[in-house]
């Protein structure tokens, strides 16, 4: 295990407090991000894990202020290097996005423009934030391609996205992400579009880029393998809330929330070659966005739920060592395995 960075060893570059984002539709209105708080220091990697519908992508989009029309941030703050960007105007955000907080989107097949050469697309990002001439931007783009391990970068800068393999396209969007050396980089499901052997290569690349630039990395994923491989800290999301936050080794060894524990057990069981044919599963399904009840959102699926869990939502409390926090009235103790 690489040395984890202890919480608050450096001043945080990103501080999110009580963030609430609501989404409206004909069927009603609900909080897709519901009172989320965390902070992140330079050089640190935070994993945000959750299943589909948990709000992890909406949280990422809230941080970038790239929410769809139907969704708005209703309360809370996002301090990027001390400045609250919740109140920033559209024009201010355009300067901040890409330069100070950047995104590596999920599917490079969709996020790259099929009509432009990849070198041009990288240069475009550079020129949007820096007063550089076209020729200069292009040679910087070639340099970025070299840094993300694209062979023959001069030649490849002239290629169109369709001429590249999936793994190469993923590295191109990585290059766009780090182009303006942002302070915070959000990687949304960095491995789902990739094959197994290429996943390992890409995660190794992300780690190297982080070491070189000192960027604070947020990895949004549903895969505990990704968390185990590259994250220092983890936040587990369920129904819009962070139900548990901890240093990565601590979360795997002693998860305090019944949901985190069930998820870790379910994914460990999938990876266990000698485990027989039955898989431990979590009964039921995640709650719908509209009409979530008063109590803990996980209570209907929780084996340990009592009456209080169904009536009140549990506040965040400390679960042992510094930096380990949980939202559960009856947190688990002891080792998961």
């Amino acid at each position: 295990m690489s040395t984890p960075i202890p919480p608050h060893s450096a001043p945080p570059v990103l501080e999110v407090e009580e963030l609430r984002t609501s989404l409206g539709s004909r069927r009603g209105r609900g909080n897709v991000v519901d009172g989320v708080s965390f902070s992140l220091s330079a050089g640190e990697t935070l994993g945000i894990v959750g299943e589909s519908g948990s709000g992890k992508t909406m949280l990422g989009m809230s941080l970038l202020r790239l929410l769809p029309r139907a969704a708005q941030i209703v309360s809370g703050s996002i301090r990027l290097d001390g400045r609250d960007i919740v109140g920033c105007t559209v024009a201010e955000m355009r300067d901040i996005r890409g330069a100070e907080i950047a995104l590596i989107p999920q599917d490079p097949m969709v996020s790259l423009d099929p009509l432009f050469r990849v070198g041009t697309q990288i240069a475009e990002t550079l020129r949007a934030h820096k007063p550089v001439a076209a020729g200069q931007a292009m040679s910087e783009a070639v340099e970025l391609l070299r840094r993300v391990n694209i062979p023959d970068p001069e030649l490849r800068a002239q290629a169109y996205p369709f001429e590249m393999s999936g793994g190469m396209r993923q590295r191109v969007v990585g290059a766009i992400g780090i182009a303006c050396t942002p302070k915070v980089l959000i990687a949304d499901e960095p491995t789902t579009a990739l094959d197994v052997t290429v996943q390992a290569q890409y995660l190794a690349l992300l780690q190297r880029l982080q070491r070189e630039t000192g960027v604070a990395l947020i990895v949004i994923t549903h895969d505990f393998g990704v968390v185990a491989q590259i994250c220092d800290r983890v936040a587990v999301m369920y129904a819009g809330r962070i139900v548990e936050q901890a240093e990565v080794g601590r979360l795997f060894d002693a998860p305090a929330h019944p949901y985190s524990r069930a998820l870790i057990e379910a994914s460990a069981a999938m990876a266990n070659e000698g485990g027989g044919r039955r898989f431990p599963s979590i009964p039921g399904e995640p709650p719908p966005l509209f009409g979530r009840g008063e109590g803990c959102a996980f209570a209907p699926r929780c084996a340990f739920a009592r009456d209080r869990c169904r009536r009140e939502a549990p506040p965040q409390t400390s679960a042992g060592p510094a930096g380990h926090a949980v939202r559960c009235f009856y947190p688990l103790e002891g080792d998961a395995r």
Binding site: Q199, L203, A271
Partner: peptide
């Protein structure tokens, strides 16, 4: 190439 099941099984390369 399988991703690790626990942070202590992390791979360097």
């Amino acid at each position: 190439s399988k991703l690790p099941a626990h942070p202590r099984e992390r791979r360097a390369i």
